[in-house]
Design a protein around this nucleic acid. Structure first.
Lengths: 185, 185
DNA sequence: CGCGCGATTGAGTAATTTCAAATCTAGTGG
DNA sequence: CCACTAGATTTGAAATTACTCAATCGCGCG
């Protein structure tokens, strides 16, 4: 079922009912509760996740024990430790749930099989990756170009929904600013 | 022939001679000289570029006229203003040659046709994009996690070749540091 | 009421920027 | 061989930005 996944895919490639029927079978459903970890540093990363409902963060904990948020993911977003997954390394990131969350999960192998079986899906993921790449370029640009304050207002403009759901300390971590500095904006 | 392109693709998908023969025809060859622009802000971005030889930089010029380097590209790398290309917008980036450069060029449409005709190539570009995405995540992480100095030494470790070919002012621009600060490391 | 979490405020400190000037280097022409 | 120039790099000093640490505030919930 999961019409949210179907709609998400169909933004890029149209699907017949039969195709979607098939595609769906590559995914498994899983529920997580607030504060629960989906990926944990040091462990193998088998799956990639599509968010049906809820909110997660991916973060890195550095040598001094400080954490930096690399990515949020809410409904309609994909998330995992891609670096670890592709290279078959243990995770360097942690991913946990900021809210109760429902995910569709697909393993690296199953995703490859899916792409092999459906050229359409290979296309879909190629385009998705390209959009992801562009989004990260924009984020890098905002590091290069803007000071903390304008990164903040820019994020506020781009994802107002996030600010309703996430404590400001996490926003600060995502922007690379201390929470004190952020609260002075 | 362009064996560098073939080898580059074959790091991810094996090709028969006939396949490569075909694939090659989707690209056109073009030479640029040092300081020449490949993409210019405000213009349409038709092509994506694969570097056979030489060195380029992609940069953004902000309202105050300062420029920030988003990407370097040397042999074996792909470059264009992806944001502009995918969304059919005028370029917001500039790309110019730091050295005399030889490129293989492919238009957005031809790349799509190539991916349509060769599932293998769609796969290739999906994997390439994923690696690109990961690399940008790492770069963001180094903005979040490290101060300017350790970003510098990290880059030095990762791409020593770059430092032989690029003036330090450009490295500074890439790292988001003033050239004066960089020269004090 | 009081606890706990998130957010804010203040003060001192560290990192980086800016602007200006000095130095270095490679290439050119006399 | 030398003087000269343009570009790149370095250095100095003041100003700015953001950080850290510590304390305080505000609010919802048991």
């Amino acid at each position: 079922m999961y019409t949210i996944l179907r709609q998400h895919i169909e933004k890029i490639v149209p699907l017949t009912n039969e195709e979607y029927e098939q595609i769906q079978t590559y995914f498994t459903f899983k529920k997580f509760r607030k504060h629960q970890f989906v990926v944990q540093e040091g462990n193998a990363v088998e799956q990639e996740y599509f968010v049906l409902k809820g909110l997660l963060k991916a973060f890195y904990i550095n040598a001094e024990g400080k954490d930096h948020i690399i990515q949020f993911a809410m409904e309609d977003w994909w998330i995992t430790d891609y670096q670890a997954q592709i290279n078959r390394n243990p995770a360097t990131l942690n991913i946990d749930c900021i809210e109760d969350t429902e995910l569709l999960c697909i393993t690296f192998e199953r995703k490859n099989e899916l792409c092999q079986a459906f050229h359409k899906m290979e296309h879909f993921f190629r385009i998705k990756s390209a959009y992801g790449y562009i989004a990260l370029q924009q984020r890098i640009l905002s590091f290069l170009n803007n000071d903390a304050q304008s990164r903040y207002t820019q994020l506020l403009r781009q994802y107002p929904a996030l600010f309703q759901r996430v404590p400001k300390a996490l926003i600060a971590s995502y922007l690379g600013v201390s929470r004190e500095t952020l609260s002075r904006f």
